[in-house]
Design a protein around this nucleic acid. Sequence first.
RNA 1: GACCUUUUCAUCUAGUGGCCAAGGAUAUUACGUUUUCAACGUAAAAACAGAGGUUCAAAUCCUUUAGGGGUCGCCA
Length: 460
Amino acid sequence: MTVTRFAPSPTGYLHIGGLRTALFSWLTAQHDKGEFLLRIEDTDMARNSEEAKDAILKAFEWVGMSHDGEVVYQSKRFSLYTKYINQLLAEGKAYKCYMSKEELSILREEQMAKKERTRYDGRYRDFEGTAQEGVEPVIRIKAPQEGTISFKDGVKGEINIASSEVDDFVIARADGSPTYNFVVAIDDALMGLTQVIRGDDHLYNTPKQIVVYEALGLNIPDFYHVAMINNEQGKKLSKRDGATDVMDYKTMGYLPEALLNFLVRLGWSHGDQEIFSLAEMIALFEPQNINKSSSNYNLDKLLWLNAYYIKNSSDEALISLLKDFGVDLTANPKASVLLNATKERAKTLVELSAQIKLIAIAPTAYDEKSTKKAFKGEAKAILSTFADMLMLASPTSKEAYHSVMEKIVAEKEIGFGKIGMPLRVSLLGSMTGSGLDEIMFILGVEETIARIDKAIASIG
RNA sequence: GACCUUUUCAUCUAGUGGCCAAGGAUAUUACGUUUUCAACGUAAAAACAGAGGUUCAAAUCCUUUAGGGGUCGCCA
């Protein structure tokens, strides 16, 4: 059975790039009807935070990617790791290293000076004398000293790294706590991972982890290293490039399905298809089709997708989503018309709520440019006549409002713009926005006339 | 600096030696539609990183140069 995982360290919020790798893993598991596990990598006690962990879990909940089984915390598995460390020590596959941090940094400086890749020189690998006093040893694993470490990456193909590039790295710190590359290999194996899908910043960790798998005789999963997401200029994505926290997208009014659709198309595609429902993604996604090259983050496409998903969301869904944006349409009998009038011109829920508020709240100011253009000549007289006609007709449908407009256009022998422009400014305060007949229907006769009167009175 | 990796329109991508004088999408521009703004429709503009090779034939295979990204912790 396919088993994949996402394994964040709880040192901050869930990053947009992290969400994409998680999505790829999640989709792989769903596609194969396997399991998607979540593991919190909290071996570094100094840097972990409970809030960060909760934030990550919350982000997963928001996008609707659920994990199977219990969340695994590495901090709760230390005794397990210690057991393996002792085993390797007993088997002579790992050893205590008494090199001090100072000595290490001197070694590094020397190597830098010689323009070499910095690495531990293995000086305690076969050490048998008496340990020097005052240095608590770290434990290093014996990595192969000759040949190459090879593995097949599902994305990048065959990867060969010379053993000389991989040193005897630390598997347990001086205080006895295990390190990242050691515990990752153990957990991935013990959790039954079949495919490890992760960012390609881990590519160089893979040979190290293979050393661990082999020393412990554990099964090696298939690896898929996904290239990073960069900013639009192709540079590393940073906070300056806009939102990197997944939850920021919620507050900015994005729908989770739009975000996931956007992310799945970064580094993956299926022919010419752009829109993928969750079900389609699951049916079509296969990790072998992930692209090798890194992709650039581009907000325009996300906005377009978000607009698409807003336009195609049901009224009920939108009403529920809008509650977080200060708009409650639950009891509004005209909610459907209101949403129809607004959802085609909103790219985000923030914009949608603004559109709705624009209609719901009478304008307190009128856009200067618009008034200048709309309120010249006969405008006030036409508006006033129109108000009278509305009163008389008291329309009760969108169409009926439209008829009144048609009537005044015919009677006064004017173009639609002559009534449309000043009316729009009166109702909304500017010359952009939804259809007038819809707006008037939503407002009702009384409010429509009130806004017209107010505009006539206050526009000089 | 060493090692690994990557390179098709501004951006996401299709493309696995002939279906490619390179297709789709976003963004841009124009036109249409509309009382306005959108949405929508139609159209335009826009790329195989450079240089060598292999081949009857190269975006696709090879060599090399250049650019980008990653890694070099008792962080994860």
